[in-house]
Write a protein that binds this DNA or RNA. Structure first.
Length: 273
DNA sequence: GTCCAGGCATGCA
DNA sequence: TGCATGCATGGA
């Protein structure tokens, strides 16, 4: 992999195992929008990006070396060898065909606050509606980053909202969870940075103490926002997948179960009813 | 109209 | 510890 800075764009050459369509629209992040030209636009960690891929070259438009190094390199997990990871996963015969079919799904390293907040909203909800709620949340309370794109509002910004304010966004019964969550993160009672430093088990324990966070939401937040690649979220789709693994997960998933999970989740949504 | 979605808190046994 | 139930909303 080679990085070139070219007229305001950043070119990452020799990128293997990255499919932007799959990665940005497989239910792990809710804020990327596909453009008419096939590229993707979105905001992460307060920074706007338009991105596309041609063959093995990823083009990050109108960005800077600083943003690439500080935000996007980690966000798109460029430092991880997904070819090797996929080869390891394919030692399990059941997942092998799925990895081939949806080759290029990566785990995005999202902001921990955005991930936690988003997956509290996600519970007992469908992806289309989750996107709508989060879009309204950002447009109403986030900062405008550029035309039509907003940052994800901080816990501090949201801590002054009432339960009714959250209900007005269409969050339904989750409004009371969000109201409390924002206050407790803003006050420091919940310390997301500290949770990142804990073991998976201890980090999960901390998240499970939060009102409105159960095992599924905790595992999603840990996988997508806290860098725990071994967190293995089981939702209604993954419950169906688990019937194929009556004896438990194969050993080759160890340490990268979350990545396996994302391939299986995507397969289930496309193939199981 | 009914069923379902990246579930959770609560009450009860 | 495990199970049943209520919960908001909108698309299928």
């Amino acid at each position: 992999m080679k990085v070139e800075y070219c007229g305001g764009d950043v070119l990452v050459k020799g990128v293997q195992c990255l499919d932007l369509d799959l990665t940005l629209d497989c239910g792990q992040a809710f804020r990327w929008e596909k453009q008419q030209d096939g590229s993707w636009s979105g905001v992460a960690k307060g920074v706007f990006l338009n991105i596309y891929k041609e063959n093995d070259i990823v083009v990050l438009k109108n960005t800077t070396k600083e943003d690439f190094e500080n935000v996007w390199y980690d966000y798109f997990d460029f430092g991880k060898d997904y070819v090797k990871i996929c080869d390891t996963l394919k030692k399990d015969e059941l997942i092998a065909g799925t990895v081939d079919e949806y080759y290029g799904i990566r785990i995005l390293n999202q902001d921990s606050w955005e991930a936690l907040c988003s997956f509290v909203i996600s519970q007992q909800n469908n992806i289309k509606r989750i996107k709508g709620i989060i879009s309204r949340l950002c447009a109403t309370y986030g900062d405008k980053v550029c035309d039509g794109f907003y940052s994800f509002p901080s816990a501090q910004r949201l801590s002054s909202l009432s339960e009714e304010d959250f209900e007005a966004l269409g969050t339904g019964y989750r409004a009371k969870y969000l109201e409390k969550l924002c206050r407790n993160v803003a006050s420091g009672e919940i310390d997301l940075e500290k949770i990142k430093t804990l073991s998976l088990e201890d980090a999960r324990k901390e998240l499970l103490n939060i009102y409105g966070v159960g095992i599924k939401v905790a595992n999603c937040a840990l996988l997508f926002g806290f860098g725990f690649y071994d967190a293995f979220p089981i939702d209604v789709w993954m419950k169906r997948v688990m019937e194929y693994y009556p004896d438990g997960l194969p050993q080759c998933f160890d340490g990268i179960g979350g990545i396996a999970q994302q391939y299986l989740f995507h397969w289930a949504r496309n193939n199981l009813k």
